[in-house]
Design a protein around this nucleic acid. Sequence first.
DNA 1: AGAACGAGGTTACACGTGTAACGGTTACTC
DNA 2: GAGTAACCGTTACACGTGTAACCTCGTTCT
Lengths: 347, 347
Amino acid sequence: MRTVMDSDRAHHADPAVPPPTSADVARLAGVSRATVSFVLNNTAGGRVGERTRAKVLAAADQLGYVPHAAARSLRAGRTGLVLLVGSAVPIGPLFSGFYRDLQDALHRHGYTPVLLGPTAGSGEAAARAWAELRPTAVLCLTPGLTPGGVRILLRSGTRAVLTLGTPPVAGAHALIMDQSEVGASAAAHLLERGRRRIGVVMPADPALSLFSAPRLAGVRAVAESAGAGAVVEPLPLDYTEESAAELATRCRELTLDGLFGYNDEYAMLAQRALQDAGLDVPRSVAVVGADDLLLARLLRPRLSSVRMRLTSGEELADLVDRVVADPESAPVDRDLMTVQLIARESS
Amino acid sequence: MRTVMDSDRAHHADPAVPPPTSADVARLAGVSRATVSFVLNNTAGGRVGERTRAKVLAAADQLGYVPHAAARSLRAGRTGLVLLVGSAVPIGPLFSGFYRDLQDALHRHGYTPVLLGPTAGSGEAAARAWAELRPTAVLCLTPGLTPGGVRILLRSGTRAVLTLGTPPVAGAHALIMDQSEVGASAAAHLLERGRRRIGVVMPADPALSLFSAPRLAGVRAVAESAGAGAVVEPLPLDYTEESAAELATRCRELTLDGLFGYNDEYAMLAQRALQDAGLDVPRSVAVVGADDLLLARLLRPRLSSVRMRLTSGEELADLVDRVVADPESAPVDRDLMTVQLIARESS
DNA sequence: AGAACGAGGTTACACGTGTAACGGTTACTC
DNA sequence: GAGTAACCGTTACACGTGTAACCTCGTTCT
């Protein structure tokens, strides 16, 4: 506990004294509430004279008046809210930068971006909760929004819903972030390097299966199209060194010659374990990760990786602007991610 | 562009048809609006009979009625909003877990947590913007909130403001996350290992100085208290391999024998560069990082690190509950972080 | 001089809710 | 059989805004 200083005396607002309203400002300035509104929102040019204008501003300042967003948007019938519904998985630098970028861009466009963790049971119940806020747009960066949920949102006045999801969710614009491309890119590279028995490091954490499952599927798809002889083996890993050691022995038993890590982090863990188990990278096993982390370049051999790039926040904000402006338009789809394989010494 | 399917026909809500209100529900059910409100909020036990109750629910469901949060909180005079103002620096797994945890806990306590990036010019202007939302509480996890900003918030009805900041901000409860302890812990360890010429890896990114500056200060404080002979040398690093190589040569020129990395990531980069430059770790230079990342254990020698633990979200949510319940109480302060040095082979 | 006009300000209503206060039945009690 | 309680529902107001429509002057035009 800190000692109570004098300046702390007034640290609380007396609940008996409610926050000042525009009516209070009007009273103090000796004008009508409408005038206050005109001044504070400087509506319609020279509606109000310079003298009263000054009086109003002074009064507002003296009272510490702050408009009530709820009342305002109730009256206006719309909020500038854009709900950004994030995924539950721990986000790396890629996504955290993307979110920041996107928020900035939306802010510049006059919206009020709000980040929301996925509510428990992200189905229609969540959609209802979001709809209560009467957002202008909803960007759902995690799959799971149902057509029913979209209907609820649109019915409640949301002008545009953009969501991930395969297949595209009826009624919503489609954001596409095809994780299978990541696996496909890695697999193609490994096949090109002559590898035929490919292990795929899969996080044991079920929350990550959202990302890992499609990446595995991408590997599978490419392997199958490569004809017979190509084998794909999923290898669970729970992000500990012990688990990685087991994975390495498993790798040897299965005589795998290629390894795709779900992630650079998982790939790094796996590569280290392989080396500790006496396997040569890349001679006996080639390793590829994903994310292109700088840290992965510290390993020897340096880790090959699938680099992902996300759309700029500005582009996405522009898209939001467009679909909000014309809610009647046909559903749009936008690919958020491009992948590129960066080959280094590990493969 | 996706082909327009039949089910997409109704993908937009006709703007001419406004979202249904409780009045619409009342009309459809053939009851008064008050009854609708009683049913939907199931107020006061058996106010309304089973038959009409069912009718109301059916009507609400049929119309897809969703209450209007703004109107509701306008009437109620309070929102359950808790603003979580995050910092601008890219967050690692530690903080991202903390935020998630905190959001869950607040949700369980009946609040509506909302994550906000720090608005540009996080001064009184930001406070005003936050105050417009009439939040019940504001948790500012980044310094920069001024006493004036706190006054604005409290004046506008916010029942509790908790913020980081040294010294504590007048009027607000104090959240303490003393980054200097991180540096202090590392420095104490290095001194104990007999190192006297300590380099501190400092991120070149100015946004990170929020964290790095106090950590450096912590190192300095401990070094000074250790008496003469202890030298502290800040070493800029911009998170590239080239920059790390320069840092290594700088290290050699200065004949440093200990290195504290701002971060495990920065420390890993530095350690690798030292080794590439032919310096032995830990014999000639001992290295300590911070964050205790699993990845840092993959290096050889494995990286020593300062492990940080943050308060559980539940504890913090409890605190919020308490200070919200009694806004008149004296300012509380709460330490959010504890540090612990994990010694490994790199030091 | 009377009409037309613009500048400066006000009145009055609507937005969608929650709830206190108030009826009107019906059934039960003495 | 009148009082009364329990039950079920309604009427009416308040929350804090924005803005269309209206009013009141002083000024300018014909």
